[in-house]
């Protein structure tokens, strides 16, 4: 794969050359692209070779030169469970979903149970807007095949690969579990919001507990999924209402630990990811970008869009997702 931060005209040239592309950038630029074999999602933040940056006048373009075929589908929310129906055997699939849409919620809540979802790498991200426009501007996805903009549903690109190709989809989570009984939580219900929670077997109101204890809500809740650390980021705490909202659902039955604090996000990523990443398709979270003050900071060779949620089979928060493809 080839990652590049390009001007509008250079991106148009790549599309017109017939390349298979995944494109991230401002809506005003995505809307000007010609039809072709590409999918696009809105964001104005990216991790570039020069460091984290706003990309108001450029597009972050990932090319998939090894793909032997590409099928683009827009799935309405009520058809999300058919996502894996389009998997090309031995291939990979990319997915883009607008933040705050019904598809975002549905995928987050139910995606883990969709038939066949785990049968091939499914990598993607939740599209966003400039943070100052949250609530006033809607995130979107663009279907290059039709030229259509969608504010809801999932846009999927299924890629076929040459026989013998190997693929790898994984995550980099810079957070670790604190393993402190006072910040270990279990929820009775799966959802984007929670009122009560079990802490050491005692039921408390989470919002008031967070407020009383002065817990740092920039730190995610971290569950251990058989060795994979999966974050849920805290969106808001309303102590008066007694409700906490999250950027991904907490799952009933999972055990969550508040993450250990981090001094330097960029350094933590650099330490974990080493020298790799140059040919990797990756994305990273807007919360890491903001909380870690990553504008202008380099995070190794992993470049890609900064997103309102990352997808590696399931919706993730505050995580770097990376996809590698090697042809025989």
């Amino acid at each position: 794969m080839k990652n590049q931060l390009l001007s509008l005209s250079d991106t148009v040239a790549r599309i017109q050359a017939g390349e298979t592309l995944s494109i991230a950038g401002p809506e005003a630029l995505l809307a000007q692209l010609p039809r072709g074999t590409w999918i696009g999602g809105t964001t104005v933040y990216a991790l570039t070779e020069a460091g984290g940056a706003r990309i108001d006048d450029r597009l972050f373009v990932t090319g998939f030169p090894d793909a032997t075929a590409a099928t683009i589908r827009h799935l309405p929310t009520d058809a999300l469970s058919t996502l894996a129906d389009g998997y090309a055997p031995g291939g990979v699939s990319l997915v883009l979903i607008p933040a705050f849409s019904s598809a975002h919620s549905a995928f987050a809540m139910d995606g883990m149970g969709y038939p066949g979802l785990f049968d091939q790498p499914l990598m993607g991200w939740v599209t966003g807007v400039p943070v100052e426009e949250i609530g006033t501007t809607a995130p979107a996805v663009f279907d290059g095949a039709t030229g259509q903009r969608h504010g809801d549903g999932a846009l999927v690109m299924h890629l076929a690969l040459p026989a013998g190709s190997t693929t790898s989809l994984d995550i980099v989570n810079i957070f670790t579990q604190s393993n402190n009984p006072a910040t270990t939580f279990s929820f009775a219900q799966t959802g984007f919001t929670a009122t009560n929670v079990s802490v050491g077997g005692k039921i408390v109101n989470l919002a008031r507990y967070i407020t009383e204890k002065g817990l740092d809500t920039r730190l995610p809740l971290v569950a251990n999924y058989a060795g994979a650390l999966i974050n849920v980021a805290i969106r808001a705490v309303d102590a008066e209402k007694g409700e906490v909202s999250f950027f991904a659902p907490v799952v009933a039955g999972a055990v969550y630990h508040l993450a250990n604090p981090l001094e330097d996000y960029a350094a933590a990523f650099a330490a974990q990811i080493g020298a790799g990443g140059a040919g990797t398709h990756s994305c990273n979270c807007i919360l890491n970008y903001l909380y870690g003050d990553m504008a202008g900071q380099k995070t190794g060779n992993f470049t890609g869009p900064v997103t309102f949620g990352e997808i590696a089979y399931i919706l993730l928060n505050q995580t770097l997702v990376k996809l590698d493809i090697a042809t025989a």
Binding site: P121, A226, G227, A252, G253, Y313
Partner: peptide, 24 residues
């Protein structure tokens, strides 16, 4: 609760979901 850290991400997430469902 066997740790599957060396397994693929797909296997880790799927097994974890199944474990949660069995516990419930």
């Amino acid at each position: 609760t066997t740790d599957l850290s060396k397994a693929s991400l797909a296997t880790r997430i799927l097994v974890s979901r199944l474990r949660i469902e069995v516990r419930a």
